[in-house]
């Protein structure tokens, strides 16, 4: 192992332990690591956004347009100029100018979302809910599969009923909504169980680093 790799492991171990020290109580080591983390992360983000965003999409086309003078290059200058309006944030008097690029991005995002979300999340999900019944009709789904298909439709309807606030939840609506809550609770329970797995995996990885790469107790 070379010198810088070794130093790197010790730095990483120090910072890891500094962050874990908060488990005992808040302390300067933790605060130092926490703030360093924010600064370094944003710094990394800036560098990558410049080299992998601004350079290929703005600076390179700009340079090519200036050097070659190709007329089609000038069309690209329009969105570049609109993007530059984000810098208006730096001047309190001209901050309102950032509304232009934001409005374009939000308008574009909303327009693109409507048909695609409708197809992928409404039509496809509705089709998925009904599809098992086509299998039942075709005789390819039977027994326990039928029960599961009915359970799925019932679950989706009851969950949607719980979110349906245009009518008062009384009588049958109240009961459907209550069943909907039960389904939601099972859904959230599943999410919690899986989240525990995820968070514990992160801890295991750090302990693996400390015991393996740093202390070399495990291989």
């Amino acid at each position: 192992m070379d010198f810088w790799s070794l130093i790197g492991i010790w730095v990483a171990a120090f910072l890891t332990l500094s962050i874990y020290s908060v488990l005992y109580r808040d302390n300067p080591f933790y605060r130092f690591a926490e703030h360093l983390f924010v600064g370094v992360s944003v710094g990394y983000g800036i560098v990558l956004s410049v080299y992998q965003g601004l350079v290929p999409f703005a600076l390179k086309p700009l340079w090519e347009t200036v050097t070659t003078g190709a007329p089609e290059g000038f069309i690209k200058l329009i969105p570049i100029c609109i993007g530059l309006l984000f810098f208006a944030r730096l001047s309190p008097r001209h901050t309102w100018l950032i509304r232009y690029p934001i409005a374009i991005l939000i308008g574009y995002g909303s327009g693109i979302a409507i048909p695609n979300v409708l197809r992928a999340n409404i039509f496809e999900q509705t089709r998925g809910t009904i599809a098992p019944f086509a299998e039942i009709a075709a005789g390819t789904l039977s027994g326990w599969g039928v029960v599961e298909a009915i359970l799925m439709v019932a679950g989706v309807i009851c969950t949607l009923t719980y979110f349906f606030f245009s009518v008062e939840h009384r009588g049958p609506v109240k009961w459907l909504s209550k069943v909907g809550i039960a389904f939601l609770m099972i859904g959230f329970g599943s999410a919690f169980g899986n989240t525990v797995m995820g968070r514990v995996a992160l801890l295991i990885q750090r302990v693996d680093f400390l015991l393996g790469d740093w202390l070399r107790i495990i291989s």
């Binding site: 999900q125 089709r127 998925g128 599809a131 859904g187 899986n194 989240t195 797995m197 995820g198 995996a201």
Partner: peptide
């Protein structure tokens, strides 16, 4: 996917998305 978002993937798995 990570543990946090596993549960929400199952509707997409059932539809073949």
């Amino acid at each position: 996917v990570t543990g946090v978002i596993i549960a929400q993937m199952f509707p997409y798995l059932q539809t073949g998305q």
